[in-house]
Design a protein around this nucleic acid. Sequence first.
RNA 1: GGGCGAAUAGCUCAGCUGGGAGAGCAUCGGUCUUACACACCGAGGGUCACAGGUUCGAGCCCUGUUUCGCCCACCA
Length: 890
Amino acid sequence: MADELAKGYQPHAFETKWYQIWEQQGYFHADQHSDKPPYSIVIPPPNVTGVLHMGHALNNTMQDILARWKRMTGHEVLWMPGTDHAGIATQNVVEKQLVSEGQDRHDVGREQFVERVWQWREESGGQIINQLKRIGASCDWERERFTMDDGLSTAVREVFVKLYDDGLIYRANRLINWCPRCHTALSDLEVEHDDKKGSLWHLRYPVKGSDQQLVVATTRPETMLGDTAVAVHPDDERYQDLIGKMVVLPLIGREIPIIADDYVDKEFGSGAVKITPAHDFNDFEMGKRHNLENINILDESGIINENGDAYQGLDRNTARAKVVVDLEAQGLLEKTEEHLNSVGECYRCKTVVEPYMSLQWYVDVQPLAKEAIKAVETGQTRIIPAQWEKTYYEWMYNIQDWCISRQIWWGHRIPAWFCADCGEITVSREDATHCCKCNSSNLQQETDVLDTWFSSALWPFSTMGWPENTSTLKKFYPTSCLVTGFDILFFWVARMMMMGIKFMGEVPFKDVYIHALVRDAQGQKMSKSKGNVIDPLTVIEEYGTDAFRFTLTAFAAQGRDIKLSTERIGGYRNFCNKLWNASRFAMMNLEGFEPVEQPQWDQLNLSLADRWILTRLTQVEQQTNKALEEYRYNEVANALYAFTWHEFCDWYIELIKGDLYGERSGDDGAAKLSAQTVVYTVLERLLRLMHPVTPFITEEIWQKLPGTRPVASIMLSSYPQGDGLVQDAAATAQMEQVMEVIRSIRNIRGEMDVSPGKKITALFDCKTEEICSVMTAAQHYITSLARIENLTCGVGLDQPEQVAKQVSGEVEIMLPLAGLINIEEEEKRLIKEIAKVQKDVDMFSKKLSNEKFVANAPAAVLEKDRGKLAAAQDKLIVLQEGLEKIIALK
RNA sequence: GGGCGAAUAGCUCAGCUGGGAGAGCAUCGGUCUUACACACCGAGGGUCACAGGUUCGAGCCCUGUUUCGCCCACCA
């Protein structure tokens, strides 16, 4: 086995292999009839059009860690996977294909188009599923769902009909956000606002029956074609005499009134605003207040319609330019200023959206939001980190009715039928054949489809078979945790909360863990246009999946964005390599070792190092479980990293080499057996402990360990809980002292430039018999790790004349110079060291001489500080004596 | 305009209930010491953004300021 390890850490050699085995063996499958306690997660379904990006990688790594950890702690884990049909996004992909064939969707017709989207989905959709497998996602793929599949479509209709029957779905003719490219309405959330440099044009409107001109300022001059008033502030002294008069709309010639409304800001522009109720949300409201006419000047592609007179047929942008030119030609353009304003864009195609009058379907979400707020307030659902609660509440309090109809073809067609005879709307679970009012069969189904987020909102229960009362729902709803990015908190999480409570009577998830955004090393959002995208699959190619997952875990501190750099991933690849080599070392020394399931610790002759590492492992196991419990992923990674590298590898393995190689004097083989047992135990448990984060390397090594495993895969083993090991606080403290002494000697050697190969003599003048016996017992550690060939320990030792000195706790270390240490260097070193210790002495003396501190500080703090002061004072004296002697030698 | 977050070593960031400031990378010096040079040993490096306050004691709590980021909102 060790031979295979000798080839080095080559992640690609085994990652795919293990994933296939796990999947084939059904280890990812959740049994809804199991007696084990349930743990469930629904995946945020990626778009079928999606390609795995960093956000997915992070999101799914976090989920996979939870899923694997919970499986190992005896839970029946359901990680429900699937994809979202992504209405507009997917339709756009197929439309683009058509365009490349010289067609558009109207050429092929609705039915054929939808057929074609399904075909596309069969052939190239869902590639992201395989990419998720590459990162190790242990989803129950047997249950994979799609928001457009039959079961989910049934759920969608059920919800629509119920909401309609409850009076929570209605139709209304209002201004909505319209994408002239996608030809559909968008919800408020689907419009992204971006501050853009534009112009503010000041236009002169002639006042009827006078020579006066009223100046209005606008950022969208083409909308003047649809103006039906000009508004001023009722208190604006400049315009008192104009209120109630008419202006003649230039270019069009229409006479429109000058009205007064206190919405108008006197300070802005000229203080007069042109009012276009059909193309501006504020103007629409004002139009309602003043009974103004709504004149729509655009068609659904953003082209000026018949209401635009001479401008009919022009694109809105062309029309804008022409309006400005024409007004200027007539001397009606007062001035043009630069202006920064927020422009709404379609979140799918980035086209500037237009406020547009149309008849749409809405959900009255207020009653649903109320319950969703309460669920978080009462703690039925926890949001982690808690700071996001506020954002959630804020949005929920100010929630607006949800426009759910989309004028596209790909999606759940709204289950409403219009009667051609009586005009009644029939809403039905099954395809309606007769009007619910007049029984006519002359029905036409609504052509609109539902917002893609409508079906996503049902995801936690629709995927489990709702509206049937399935055993899966009984076992796994509500889900344990939802892991998601904050960017879809409103789009998705909030709506799932509302729908879950409404239709299941229970919140959809107990915890919502919200993670950060992955950015590039400079902190910029990754985007294709910036060219700063790091492709997760490329990273996996280069560094392996485990290194990548470990990096994401280590970076995932709560509440901060992740700045990803490939250097860091390389660092964690090195860590995997370290683990690999440590395992190789262990296995080289476990020839003939027969592991037992539960070692009898008291039967073994455990060394100080053994006791120390077992105690530390116990602590790390507890720490890891606690951090996982609290979603402190970075702490999980850091604890595992530090323990593995800096304790297990840097110290423990070095400490036991003497035992393993039988170099320790008077060894009867007991030391070797105990070291073997411990190194095996620590490694085996460490692998299990790390498995949720780095599933592949841990499985690969675990399978290679000597002896037989009680289960077929590390996935099926239990998660270490910090029990069943030796805990020895005294041994741990002694080991720490020994390590400190070794560090001190190494420090002197380093500072004094003593070659690492050179063996030197050391004397330890110990303060007490106790510490002396600790050092004596640990002699072999000190001689081998600090490269000492002759160590003398004692209490009140005679001090040779020429020594380098250091104090480590209760041990005074003396390294006889004997020609290897430069006296000037030692003097400099001591002066530096004394200065450091002097600072400590000063600080603690000052603190402890402060009466208020002594009077108020807790006893434990006082005692600790007094101890530290005493130690520092002792150290100072010894070092000063040492310095005097060195100076005397000169 | 409202809300949220951030500011700690050269860089990227930890620091959870207030008790002598930490990691990784980078830097410098030394090592091919029989698992690992993707390594080992050692070292240097901080006015915890600024100004006040509370406290025996503040990176942490309070107030204000500055800079940056994000979200929400209809200012033409």
